[in-house]
Design a protein around this nucleic acid. Sequence first.
DNA 1: TAGATTGTTAATCGATTAACAATC
DNA 2: TAGATTGTTAATCGATTAACAATC
Lengths: 208, 208
Amino acid sequence: MSNRSRILRLSRYKNAALRLKSLNFLKVFSDNLADATGVTASQVRKDFSIFEISGNRRGGYQIDELLTQLNKVLGKDKLQKFIIVGVGNLGRALINYQGFVKSEIKIVAGFDTDPAKFNRKAEALILPMDELPGFVKTNEIELAILAVPEFAAQECYDKLKSAGIKGILNFAPIRLKSDDKVVIHNLNLETEFENLIYFVNTKTEPTD
Amino acid sequence: MSNRSRILRLSRYKNAALRLKSLNFLKVFSDNLADATGVTASQVRKDFSIFEISGNRRGGYQIDELLTQLNKVLGKDKLQKFIIVGVGNLGRALINYQGFVKSEIKIVAGFDTDPAKFNRKAEALILPMDELPGFVKTNEIELAILAVPEFAAQECYDKLKSAGIKGILNFAPIRLKSDDKVVIHNLNLETEFENLIYFVNTKTEPTD
DNA sequence: TAGATTGTTAATCGATTAACAATC
DNA sequence: TAGATTGTTAATCGATTAACAATC
């Protein structure tokens, strides 16, 4: 019913609607969103109908109302607190990433094994791993980012799981599997690079 | 014929084969790769047949030979040089990312507008934007990473395109479109987070 | 040889698109 | 009202899976 591609499209519709709103649009048609995101108008309406997002025949969709509904589906109607395990190059970059400031995504703490990285004064705390279960519990954290080297990934995953984390965005270069306790979203940077390289080499338009 | 998902699967087969090789496997069956990557054995064989990767009836696939062929498709048979535009948190993290050391991916230079970031002594140079076209030309660079804020993305894209770049991995939070000159692979971190959040909230297994 | 696995064809499944009645 | 756009159904398309002949 709702596969990953469909949710990715909803994010794009949301971003397109946001941009059109900033251009003072008050309403959009499925055709506008289709143009802006590179899909068909049928697809837009189909996606909306699956999430029971409805508009006005002849009048399109009110942008504000549409954004409210898309944000709700995408969990942007409330602050989503993340912790991050592994404060290396990538971990630190995500903690400081400016792209999240307007969004409802916040990384509230990082965890690492290296005492040199601990920091209890920064806005996002950097704490030792053994404080993770307590922090997760008292702050009611459900979401985590895993940004450790391959060798540490499985062990950290186990710790996150037993701490009660419900969803993990995994940047470690090893594919973790979702189970009914934890949803995993694997994001392997090398794989993304390889994908680009393939399409450049063959010069065929990627269909996604 | 070869969509993005298929290439992603090839990367996974490659990674699985690499892991099995490190366990001293000499050959693998489609069934092994299927188990390791979570797809069906039919899918593995179908994917291979599309890329004319063949094995031995009854004998499976020789790992070394398989890796050679997969690496070739994925462009890992030669060093892939990237430049990066935008040396902020994310840009710097990618330059220093340890996950690429064993792979044939290398970021050879970064470009930025901020003089405080310039560095002609580091292994990966950080140079001013106006040296980009010359650098690309003399070093025969075809691939780039775009890691600038949204407002700068379009302008930087234009510069990369006119410098002759053939493929861009775009981390800027705006969707760029491929054309017949440049292949674009958009990677929007906020979108990836939203995807995870959706599946955690609905607790349905993502199908990708 | 008998048994096991590939490579490929045909069947199935699911996602996208087209079409159009409903309706504002 | 006439015209335009949604919402939904039916048709199409493409990707995945099952099945099995080929063959090592």
